[in-house]
Every structure is written in structure tokens, then in C-alpha cells.
């Protein structure tokens, strides 16, 4: 069986105006199809910048990115149809109901109305939100918002899903339902690129991991490969601290 590459990154660099230090500095990375890929790093390491570039929200200063065999530079509209994003912020319209929000986000992918309704109902049921579908987001709890934030990113069944800290600041129950469903989505064939500061969660979810610091990938591979490269340290958190240091980041 041939392993196909979902995301191919070559010498990616991103410099922000007024900042001499590049946020991402010559990163090259391949993410294989069907993987649950963890992009980990301390604050300001370059994770969000990389995700934003892969989603077409930021332009790279140099380097090439290919998503599903399509060039990010030349075929962004096609790429947008095949990827999903779950941002760190609750990117939902707070004055609209949950159903209206999903109708808008699903509608933008051109999902036919009937199919969209079926999918919305299905996800409401899976994530335990069916009773709250007509409630405005402003009245939702943090956990409910996180669950809906995730649904909005997967309604169109993307081939590649980008998750930027999808479980930050929520209760254990919501976290459990989100992580279980992410596993199922991944098992259904969706490649997932995930960032988080919860290293235990990352360790349990991810099939491969890269740790980035100061814009540079300092280690990448499966958990086994990473352990063997770091004197068989067992816990990801210990490996992370050894590689990125103990100093708190801004």
C-alpha cells in the first residue's frame, strides 16, 4: 500500500513586518494522509502561524506548501473546499442560533439544503446539542460553544481538518465527547492537524508529532520514533521540556 502525503511543506518561512526574527523559519514537513498529526510547541513557537498559512489565511514569505497535491499558492480555492478549520477562538455568531450558524457555515461549502439539515441533526445529536439548536450562541456555556465550534469545522466532511487548541478551557465531559469524536473522524479517513498545550491529550490522540520552537521544527515522528531519539523518555511532557527548555515564554 502506498502512503500518500496530505500536506507537504518545503522551506516555509514567514516574517512579520517589524519583527526581524521569522515566526516560521525554513520549515520542511510532510504530513501523511490519515494521520492525526500534533503540532506542538510553547507560546509563540510558530504553530498558529503555520496553521494559518496552511489554511490560506496568511501568505508565506517564502517556501512552498502543497495540500492534497494542490499548490497553496495557485489552487487555494480548491484547497479551501477540502479542508476544515476549528479555530482557537469561538468563531461563531453569538446573536444567531446554533442551527443558523451551522446553516451558514455549511451553506458556504455548497452542501445541498436537505443533506445539510441531515448532517446538522446528526452532529447535534452526537455532540448532545439537539435540545439547544434554537438557542443563540450567546446563551451557550463554554463547553457547548467548543462543541459547536468543532461541528462548524467538520460539517462539510473535509479531507484535512485543522484544529487549533480545540479543547481549551472546557469541562471534562465536553473534552471527552470532543476527543472521542475526533478519533472517530480520524478513523474515518480525515487527516487531522492539531495543536494543543495539553500534552497528555496530544500523546493519546496523535499518531505523529512535531515539536516546533522559535519557528523551527526541533523533532518530528511517531511517539516511538521521538522516544527513541530522546533516550527513551516515556512522557511527552518530559520530552517537550527537555527540548524546549524550562523558561516560560511570552
Amino acid at each position: 500500500m502506498t502512503i500518500r502525503t496530505a500536506i507537504e511543506i518545503k522551506n516555509l518561512t514567514k516574517r512579520y513586518r517589524g519583527n526581524p526574527q521569522p515566526a516560521v523559519n525554513g520549515v520542511s514537513l510532510d504530513i501523511e494522509e490519515g494521520h492525526f498529526f500534533g503540532l506542538l510547541g510553547p507560546n509563540g513557537a510558530g504553530k498558529t502561524t503555520m496553521i494559518k498559512i496552511m489554511c490560506g489565511l496568511l501568505s508565506p514569505s517564502s517556501g512552498e506548501v502543497t495540500i492534497g497535491g494542490l499548490s497553496l499558492r495557485k489552487q487555494l480555492p480548491e484547497i479551501k473546499r477540502s479542508i476544515g478549520i476549528v479555530p482557537q477562538d469561538i468563531a461563531l455568531y453569538s446573536t444567531l442560533t446554533a442551527r443558523e450558524n451551522l446553516k451558514i457555515f455549511g451553506g458556504l461549502y455548497g452542501i445541498p439544503a436537505r443533506k445539510l439539515k441531515e448532517r446538522i441533526d446528526k452532529w447535534f445529536s452526537i455532540f448532545g446539542l439537539e435540545k439547544n439548536r434554537e438557542q443563540t450562541i450567546g446563551s451557550y456555556s463554554g463547553g457547548m460553544k467548543r462543541r459547536l465550534n468543532l461541528i462548524a469545522g467538520i460539517l462539510h466532511e473535509p479531507k484535512i481538518l485543522f484544529l487549533d487548541e480545540p479543547t481549551v478551557g472546557i469541562d471534562v465531559q465536553s473534552k471527552k465527547v470532543i476527543t472521542e469524536n475526533l478519533r472517530e473522524i480520524n478513523q474515518g479517513g480525515t487527516t487531522i492537524v492539531y495543536t494543543s498545550h495539553y500534552l497528555e491529550e496530544a500523546e493519546s490522540l496523535c499518531s505523529s508529532i512535531a515539536i516546533i520552537d522559535q519557528g523551527v521544527i526541533i523533532i518530528k515522528g511517531t511517539m516511538e520514533e521521538i522516544r527513541s531519539e530522546t533516550n527513551n523518555m516515556s512522557k511527552l511532557e518530559d520530552i517537550f521540556l527537555q527540548l524546549t527548555g524550562m523558561e516560560p515564554r511570552d
Binding site: 489554511c55 490560506g56 479551501k80 455568531y93 453569538s94 458556504l108 462548524a152
Partner: peptide, 13 residues
Amino acid sequence: EDGNLERLLAMPA
């Protein structure tokens, strides 16, 4: 500010 614009821009819009 709510991040909705970024979400929309990552979609086919």
C-alpha cells in the same frame, strides 16, 4: 475580533 472573518476566509468565501 471574534475570529469569524478568519473562519469565513478559510472557507470558500
